[in-house]
Write a protein that binds this DNA or RNA. Sequence first.
DNA 1: ATGTCGAAGAATCTTCGA
Length: 270
Amino acid sequence: MPLTIATWNINSVRLRIESVARFVEAYRPDILCLQETKCMDGQFPLADLRKMGFDHIAIHGQKGYHGVAIASRYAFRDPERKPFFGKEDARHISVVLADGPATGTRIHNFYIPAGGDEPDPAINPKFAHKLGFLDEMEAWDGLKVGDAGNRSILVGDLNIAPYEHDVWSSKQLKGVVSHTPLERRRLIEVAKAGQWVDMMRELTPEPEKLYTWWSYRSPDWAAANKGRRLDHVWVSPTLGPAMRGFEIVKDARSWERPSDHAPVIATLDL
DNA sequence: ATGTCGAAGAATCTTCGA
């Protein structure tokens, strides 16, 4: 039985709820994980998502910034909202599927801090936050998924493009936050510590370019194609054999009033 | 390499964060 899971940094779920509906109508994900919902829980458009067929929704929002949500066609249990780096800033939510082909699978949805502009933790507290967040992810037993009985999926905007061909020019971006050598190494170490499989890179190895984000600041983003792979789908080793494919829905980046991120939809066969 | 966005508070622009 196939399971489809999508991840999308929507950059305001209220502003772009029509784009969410358009994506869901076209791609029918079983599970939709959103980041940067940018609203308090009481403002979240629950009714709209229910209309799209998601009967089960877990949200973790706050005013104005960040915010994550998991919308599912299948029931789930044990929702968890973990604070990182001593901050209650709505960057993680997790549930365990209680119905459907992936019953028992834990889903993690992350929004890792962007990290500001200056890649030096001594002078930039946002970069220190990003590195501290990665430290806590690496140390958290909840993300150690190597056991044979463990079925877990981690998705989200991880705000790091770890490999050379995850950016349009590794040389030109080597000093730019999201692709500094330190961040690249640390994200790979976080994945390794939990024994996570980077599904997109497993199915589409380097040197093929993969991007999920194109800056708003590029006047002709599609022609320039100066993208980065900031959005990720990781699976526990047990789910490795179930990986079937994924699609970066680049088309959505050119919809009216778009998010700067494209959705990624992954298919597993369980 | 700093171009564009979005939220929010007090206006019809500014500040912050990305």
